[in-house]
Structure formats: C-alpha cells, structure tokens
Design a protein around this nucleic acid. Structure first.
Lengths: 212, 212
DNA sequence: ACAAAAATACCACCTAAGTGTTATTTATTT
DNA sequence: AAATAAATAACACTTAGGTGGTATTTTTGT
C-alpha cells in the first residue's frame, strides 16, 4: 500500500520513512513538510487513487493539522488517515476524528505502533486509537456531541499570541494596526470562548487546547 | 566516538540513532527519553570516560534541558554537548551555552548537520552553531557578559507559578496564606530579576530560562 | 442575494495590576 | 556578632486590564 507522510520535522520525517520502509508491504508515496506543500504538490500531479494512507503529524505550524485532514479527505474521500500527535487533548482528538481521521496515535509510546496502525487500517479498516485516548473519546461521544465550535478567530489568536509574548494592549494595537479598543474586544471575546477570567488564564487554556 | 542521545520523542530518537549509525566513526553509547532517566541510569553504571558527546534536545517536558546540560557537564566535564532545538530564542541559546553547550543546531534544516556537528566538535573542538543564531549570540556576548545570578527565590517562583495558572493576586494570597501586598512584592521583585514588565512577560522569560 | 460571522471602533465604569517607599522579622552566611 | 538575603506587610498612587453596551463595515458561507 502507498503511504503519504506529512511531518514538518525533517529528522522525524526520516525516522518515520525509515520505519515504514522496513515493511515490504508499505511504499512511500511521498513525504512533505507541511499541509500546504502536500496540497500544492498533489494539485500539480494529482496521482489519483495511488494514495491509500495519509500519515500526518498534527500540531504543526501553518495550516492546522485539522484543516489539512479536512482538505485531504475532501479531495481523496477513500483515503485512510492516521494521525500522529504529541498532545492528547480531548477537543483536538475529537476535531481530528470529525474531520475524517481514523486512527489516532500518541507519539511517545512504541514507534512500531505506527506501522501496525497503518496496516490494521488498510487491511481491516480498523481504527487504532491509543488506549489512553480511546475511553475519553467514547465518553465524550455519548455526552455532548457538539462543541469544538468555540474556536478562536484569527484576530483572537493573534492577540493572544502577542499577549503570550508579554505585550500590552497598546503594543498589540500598534503591531496589528488597530485601536486598543478593538484589541480589547478580541481578547474579551476569547475569554468567553475559553472560559478564562484573565490573560494568563486565557493563555494557559489556549495553549492547553492547542489553539495557539 | 561514543554519543549519548537524550530525546523524549521515540520516533525522533530512532531517527537520530539511525542517522548516527550511518557513520562508522560514531557509536551510540545510549539513548534516553529524559534527563532524569539518563542521570539515573548513569548513576548506576557510571561508564566513566566512555561518553564523548551528548546530543540533547532541549525544550523537553520535566527537568529543563538547560538544567540537564548543567548536570551532565558537572558530572562529565570533558563531554562535548550538541544541543538540538526547535526554538531559536536568544535567551535559551545563551543559557544553554553558559551551561556548557558547545554546538547549537536548529532542527528543521538539514538532518545531516547533526552528524557534521558531532564530528566537527569531536575532532576539531569546533562549535557548530546555526548561522541564523550565531551572529545574534555574538552580539549578545559583547553586551552584558554577566548574569545568570539573578535566580528567583522560592516565594517568587511559587507566586509566578500560580500566576501561570491564571490566578489573581487575591487568589495567590489566599493559597499561600500571606497578604496581597506581600504577593505583590514577590512578583514585583521577580520582574526586576527577569527584566519583565508585566506578568505574562515574566512568565515567558521565567519559563524560557527554566526557572519555573 | 442574504444571513452569519468576524473585524473594526468608541464609551463609561470598575477592578486588578504595577510602582515607589518604608519597615519588621527570620534565616543564612561570613 | 554582624551582614546579607528572604519573607513578611502596609500605604499611596498610577496605569493597565477587564466588563457591558452599541454600532458599522467586511468577509464568508450558503
């Protein structure tokens, strides 16, 4: 089967490619450093039908991993998606699964799980979700069913990021070329979405959830 | 030469080990997932003199990479230290170098640079610092030259840690059983030591330097 | 074309955060 | 014993941060 790798760290990418090449069944359809690069390249030479599995590391800079999954799934509906991640955040997991990911692996355990997950997904269509995550996902699915809606807007993310750099409202207003009042609005709105009471709280939560 | 690897991500660790094994000159003295693990293991079987190079990824969870470098350098003064990192932040670079690191590589460029840096350090004692970082480090070195003394006191660290959890002065005063005014004093004093202008700035810097 | 979401901005008000200064009580070190 | 660093506390003052409301313009998604 043919596997496409999206992983921004070159060493990690080589490590993954090396691991996958150990298995005769697997061939590497390509490896890219970012979602954008992969989408661009695939737009030029579409290679239709030749990709079976997408192995993607989320928590990358640039286009969010989630968005990439959505985009890839839209273009190749039959592709199997294996997500590799450092964070075990409920909402991010749920977002990825909603976007079309099948398997969800925590980096940090057994490297060979990646190979197992890919083969399991390809042959049996089985979703390989790290145990620690699995039960929480199940708990959440029968619970609400809706959330992940409270995502921050671009401006809110920008403002929070600058706050995280120790900037004041005045500085942020200057950097973003908007008025102080507008900055306050963005930050205020983010507090509501994050259920935070102040800037440090908002930073803590936003970082925890991987929003910034 | 013998190289010790400290890298918490297993896939990345394998990738690095794979890269280093390509070179006949290099043998891997061990690979650990954390500073603590390495220190513990080396305390049991000290393996004196057999480690030439430490390859460490900083920005790990747990004991800060900086502290680990300091500890390793204290135990093995002759070891060469190659730091691998994602961030190209001035202060962290400087801290690492002060702690005893020789080479400082940005992950994200050429993987083989790691091998080059290790060999260069071993054979010629040459420090391999990514160009983008190098000139800024030089600029900073002719600036101050002395600090690293301004370490935070216990109370200052406690207060900052609680601030990092999004707490207000009032909450912190309650949690530490001291008056609000005293909390303010601790935080204010920390600003001076960290050269911070406000709480988020102080958090940024304290985390960067590994103080909290 | 229309509705919804996002970005912009201002105002008034209040509270929390930050500054400067002074002072006492413990530990720690010399 | 003396000096130093740390922790404690208070007060007066200034500034930055946070709340609630309203309103206009763009952008985006049907």
């Amino acid at each position: 089967m043919r596997v496409l790798i999206i992983e921004n760290d070159p060493i990690l990418r080589e490590g993954l490619a090396f691991l996958l090449r150990q298995d005769k069944e697997i061939s590497i359809a390509g490896s890219f450093t970012s979602s954008e690069e992969a989408m661009r390249s695939l737009a030029i030479s579409p290679a239709p039908g030749v990709i079976d599995i997408l192995l993607i590391d989320i928590g990358l800079p640039g286009m969010s991993g989630i968005e990439c999954i959505r985009a890839m799934k839209a273009r190749y509906p039959d592709i199997g998606i294996v997500v590799l991640t450092l964070c075990e955040d409920d909402e991010k997991v749920l977002s990825a699964i909603r976007a079309g990911a099948s398997s969800y692996l925590l980096r940090g355990n057994k490297p060979w799980e990646v190979v197992e997950a890919i083969k399991c997904l390809y042959h049996e269509g089985g979703a390989f979700i790290s145990p620690r995550i699995a039960r929480r996902v199940l708990a959440m699915l029968k619970g609400d069913g809706q959330d992940t809606k409270n995502i921050l807007t671009e401006r809110e993310k920008e403002a929070l990021t600058l706050i995280g750099q120790g900037r004041s409202y005045k500085e942020i207003a200057g950097l973003l070329n908007i008025s102080i009042e507008t900055v306050k609005v963005h930050v205020k709105n983010s507090y509501g979405k994050l259920q935070a009471g102040n800037r440090t709280d908002a930073l803590r939560i936003a970082r925890l959830k991987g929003y910034i």
